[in-house]
Write a protein that binds this DNA or RNA. Structure first.
Lengths: 253, 253
DNA sequence: CGGCCTCTTGAGACAGTTCAACCTATGTGG
DNA sequence: CCACATAGGTTGAACTGTCTCAAGAGGCCG
């Protein structure tokens, strides 16, 4: 560290969504932050629909999403798509694709996005330099897994309306943590096809479900804006408990 | 290391299923193995049905499964159960419950099991002492996530028969990697209720599905023994591609 | 202006559920 | 050692949530 003051200033400016997210779990010290900042070289812009990570291809990069929305998905042999999750700023894109020889999923930009490429070596070097980062990344991956598990419960045991309610509550909570939008009123660029492919429904049925939720005065979704009208009743319908997002302040000091 | 020879001998004997699994991803050196061996103090036995990890409880331990079968699951507000995955020797039980303040899931023994308790501090110390282990554990967690993702695809986009076929093929592959049973003929202690709760079906429908698969000469499942009669046709039906199990020899040297 | 994407609604079909009954194997207390 | 309870498995009949197919409307962009 030749210029500690300048460096620290630079780090504060660079405070990325990822840094904020990981800091919510472990208290990162300057060395950790410096190491983490290396993840943010190689920043790039991608247009909507661009596929950043390709299922079945080897030796791929991961990315850290800085701006915009993306989704990770698998295509089944019959051409059907299952969306696994949507990513918002601070989320990893294709983390498993640098740990696995061959990527088991694809990632696509939904809006115009900005993302920094992270090479396999970046990650492994970071773990050697800053073991606390390893814990933080494992935590972030576990939080992603917790969301997939919750979605699994939705597809396995919840009705279409419960799924939709649960999904939109989760989305609101995630965006709210980031400081993007409100718990009950947020912008959302997803189409009804996206929702269907994520929730294991057809787009046609998504439309009917949204209509019923609207007619029940529970929520509206129009022109890319979700407005939750009756939060408590919606939570009751969905059986929503934000526990699994594990968001209440740093655990590890 | 006072007695390098004795230590190494001890490590070889201690070669646990976990060690073998992680070694399939990173080449672990003696120091790593020694650190890993600490995960295997506090070995305990649990009877069938015993709940080792409790959803909603704080400050819980994780375990490494050494013998037997377990399952991780969530209970929804209406009392329905969604089984997230089954664990076999070498798998972590409740890893997320030491990373999260509050466990987001429960874990229960299916057969009589042997498992070693792993404290939060064990894991964090191990990461500091042996950064390669951090990578290996992240890989193991990612592999678990890949299985959950694949199950998500099943529940979202596959028919009941395709789900069952896919699930049993995955199980055969996992057991085969461990050297327990054959790809096409293995012991399986799961009831039709377990299968239903894992696959998002009722036990009644599981029964009908198994009958149809049997009548099609694809597989039989009787008295805790699964026998796959026509592997290729079953793989075709399920759209099964073992890629996501990422099993082809050490990646990281 | 025409084409494409997204949303909307209706009618009929079907995969999987629900409820209910019965069967077999295993274990347990009297 | 029988009586009974319990857990797992099997099958039928009726029901229903979601899908499929089909058609049309609105908005945006080249």
């Amino acid at each position: 560290m030749r210029h500690p003051f300048l460096l620290k200033a630079a780090l504060l400016i660079l405070q990325s969504a990822l840094t904020r997210k990981l800091s919510a779990f472990v208290s990162l010290v300057d060395d950790d932050l410096e190491t983490l900042a290396r993840f943010h070289q190689r920043r790039r812009t991608f247009m909507p629909g661009h596929e950043l990570v390709h299922e079945g291809e080897k030796r791929q990069s991961a990315f850290v999403l800085a701006e915009g929305w993306a989704c990770s998905f698998k295509i089944l042999p019959d051409g059907e798509r299952q969306i696994v999750d949507f990513q918002i700023p601070g989320d990893f894109l294709g983390l498993r694709s640098i740990l696995f020889r061959t990527s088991d999923h694809s990632v696509q930009a939904i809006t115009r996005i900005e993302a920094s490429e992270v090479l396999s070596s970046d990650l492994l070097n970071a773990f050697a330099d800053a073991p606390r980062l390893a814990t933080a990344v494992l935590w972030a991956a576990s939080r992603d897994e917790a969301m997939v598990v919750e979605r699994l419960c939705s597809l396995g045991r919840r009705s279409a309306e419960e799924r939709m309610a649960h999904f939109l509550l989760e989305l609101g909570a995630r965006l709210n943590i980031l400081g993007i939008g409100d718990l009950t009123d947020f912008a959302c660029p997803l189409t009804q096809y996206h929702l269907g492919d994520a929730l294991g429904l057809t787009a046609v049925h998504v439309n009917r479900v949204l209509r019923r939720l609207r007619e029940d005065n529970l929520l509206t979704m129009r022109n890319g804006q979700v407005t939750i009208l009756d939060l408590e009743r919606l939570k009751g319908l969905a059986g929503f408990d934000a526990n699994y997002l594990d968001q209440d302040g740093p655990l590890l000091r």
